[in-house]
Design a protein around this nucleic acid. Structure first.
Lengths: 234, 234
DNA sequence: TCAAAAGTGTTGTAACTACACCCATGA
DNA sequence: TCATGGGTGTAGTTACAACACTTTTGA
């Protein structure tokens, strides 16, 4: 912190959100179509500026989550990714953005709510393959968010944030497979997640899904760190 | 990114640095004594405001590293920790700070250079035990920086950033012990670091240190990720 | 009775902890 | 010749990938 009376240049502060969910066993990210220049018509991460100078950065992230995605931050996993402050990242002027990573369970309906009209779930593989171009440096932010999610699946119980209140072990496995982009052995996965103390807790009832043996239902346990970790292949 | 023409409130943007080094096998952090209110006389992380509105956040971190610590950023490990944006974190007004973690090799002299006069290396255990109080939310930032360093020692070659160009395996072990706050078995450590491909490379020569068998000298290899990781006990 | 999904057993191996032991040096 | 620190050998253990196998269901 500078110790003199010189006044530093103000910058505009924004928050951007990387919101992941799983839809049909594919990882999706919420993107909005921009209605104004720059990058009019391009896709961008949802986000916005701080509303007033008493609003905390985390509070702004929660507000945008509600406004742009109609999601309740208190029900979701939300963590900071970092600040993006390259001087030329926004052609309009000096904007520094603090990015957040949010994880939502798969939702039956795409989205509802006023501001969320332009928002849509986009398959992450489409973005990675370059089939969906992002505005500003949002591709970098998305890459960082994806890497954060991938690495936190290894050592934390983050995967349960992708699931509904109750889920089967197979559903949990699909989370790992979609985020990591790999296939896992269901038999080894089955034992590994159950061996980790209080990662998932059985509910006693089962779910019949057409054919095959019914799967036991689980809910998320209280454990936040996974020991031993589930290490991704490669 | 908001799509309207309303002008958001500007905030002041600062950078703060968590600079770690090892001195006499104890982890130290660089702290400066504040010369002005608020928190006059208290200790704080080195840092400062953005100098002009074309200065990138990373560039500001590098500049502060040079000005306040007389350290050359191109020689050091420097990575972003995150943004600290609680609305009441600075009593002077709305200041959002982007924190960086820097790792410096143990230096023979404390520090030299004009602005660095008030800066001094403080033992991290003193801060953790509450024997050195920090201004603002700098204690939180320090905690986050320490946790980041601890976890990156596990899976990256960060430990070599604490060492001089050439070092012995024992010196590398002291890095792990100081940062993790544990004791490690030197015989297992010896093999583990050498088994990791291109983590450290032997130089062929040795160092005599008074008594005992001379130790082989190594330099950092090109490997950045450690596989298998060195996992900390507990 | 067959396909599909859930769940169990077992083998071989990588990587680790713990500790006994030997080597090279200065005092 | 002893203390000190460098370096090697090895037994017991944990965790895991790979895959054969059994169980339970719907069609």
């Amino acid at each position: 912190m500078a110790d003199n009376d010189w006044t530093p240049p103000p910058v505009l502060l924004a928050v951007d959100l990387v919101i992941f969910t799983l839809r049909d066993a594919v990882l999706h990210v919420l993107l909005v179509e921009r209605g104004v220049d720059p990058f009019r018509g391009a896709l961008a991460l949802p986000g916005g500026f701080l509303e007033h100078d008493r609003e905390g950065v985390l509070a702004a992230a929660r507000r945008e989550l509600q406004e742009e995605a109609n999601l309740d931050a208190s029900q979701l996993h939300l963590e900071q990714l970092g600040a993006y402050g390259a001087p030329d990242r926004d052609p309009r002027g000096r904007v520094v953005s603090v990015a957040y990573l949010a994880i939502a369970p798969g939702l039956p309906e795409p989205l509802a709510g006023s501001d969320a009209a332009r928002a849509s779930w986009t398959p992450v593989p489409d973005v990675l393959a370059g089939r969906a171009k992002l505005a500003f440096d949002h591709r970098d932010i998305l890459d960082d968010g994806l890497e954060r999610a991938r690495s936190k699946l290894e050592s934390s119980a983050l995967a349960t944030a992708f699931c509904a209140n109750t889920f089967t072990i197979n559903e949990l496995q699909r989370v790992y497979e979609a985020v990591w982009g790999v296939e896992l052995d269901p038999r080894n996965f089955y034992r590994k997640v159950q061996a980790t103390n209080d990662f998932i807790v059985p509910l006693g009832n089962e779910r019949r899904a057409g054919r095959g043996r019914p799967a036991r239902l689980f809910k998320a346990g209280n454990q936040t760190t996974l020991y031993p970790p589930l290490v991704r292949p490669n």
